[in-house]
Simulated scan of single mutants.
Amino acid sequence: MTLRNPAATRGRRTRLMILAVLAVACAALVAIALPASDLTQRHSGSGVFGFEIDPSDQGGPGQLLGTRARPSLGGSGHVPDGTTVFDDDVPAVGNLDPDLLAALREAADDAADDHVGFHVNSGWRSAAYQQQLLNEAVSQYGSMEEASRWVATPETSAHVSGDAIDLGPPESAEWLADHGDDYGLCQIYRNEPWHFELRTEAADDGCPEMYDDPTQDPRMQQ
């Protein structure tokens, strides 16, 4: 049997504890010294237009880096089948502008009297989801110029700001095209008869003249 020196054992334990504390302190100093820009560069990606989108936002609000996102329910904006304008728990609906949503619900109640139901094909979208749709459109149509006739950039999209909704089926869009100005709801683009936005003056003055497609919309030129 080997006899141990209690004093020597305590000394070794003390030295080990000191080394452990020093290691933790060094790690903390390295983390503090690392520039925040390095972290951003390591964890960000670039979209078609070169601005950076945080990949962690693919399933979240998806804000553009350096901008303030509106408070939201989270999510990307993907719409489950059967979603209506009354489904507050779906981020694509719940994150819409409150005035737009109120007008849509009033119109939906009246349309139901005509046996027409409003289904949401698209509403609010995260910036990351909008960028994904734009990338897919470029691949589908073969050029940014043609894709821009159908999909806006995250910076200019009324969906990202929560100010637009795409309705289905076709009879609901047709009903709202006929009655929408009573609620301040207007079609904006001739090539997108499902796309509606709030124009409060429409109740008195009627809906404004539609653009042939989004490329004619001055908001898309920002």
Rank of each mutant, 00 (worst) to 15 (best):
G77A: 11
R105Q: 14
A107M: 04
A33L: 11
L29N: 04
V151L: 03
D57F: 07
A102P: 11
F51P: 00
Q132K: 12
S46D: 09
I32R: 15
A128F: 12
V93L: 00
P55E: 08
D109M: 12
I53L: 11
G117Q: 13
A107K: 03
L101V: 04
F51E: 11
Q58T: 14
L133H: 10
Q132S: 15
F86D: 12
G60K: 09
A108Y: 01
L134Q: 13
L134E: 08
Q63K: 10
R42Q: 10
P35H: 04
A36G: 12
T67H: 12
W124C: 01
G74D: 05
D87C: 06
Q140G: 02
D89G: 02
F86G: 05
L104F: 09
W124Q: 01
L73I: 03
S126G: 11
D99P: 03
Q132D: 14
Y141Q: 09
H43G: 06
A69D: 07
Q140F: 10
T153H: 08
V120L: 03
D97T: 05
P71W: 00
L29W: 07
V93T: 00
P35E: 07
L39P: 05
A108L: 00
D57Y: 06
S46H: 13
V30E: 11
L39A: 13
G123N: 02
G60V: 02
T67A: 06
G77S: 04
V151R: 06
A92P: 00
A31E: 13
S139W: 07
I53T: 12
R70N: 09
G66E: 05
A31G: 14
H115A: 12
D113V: 14
P71D: 09
A33K: 09
Q63V: 11
H43R: 15
T40Y: 08
D99F: 08
A69I: 06
E52S: 15
R68I: 14
W150M: 03
R149V: 04
L65S: 08
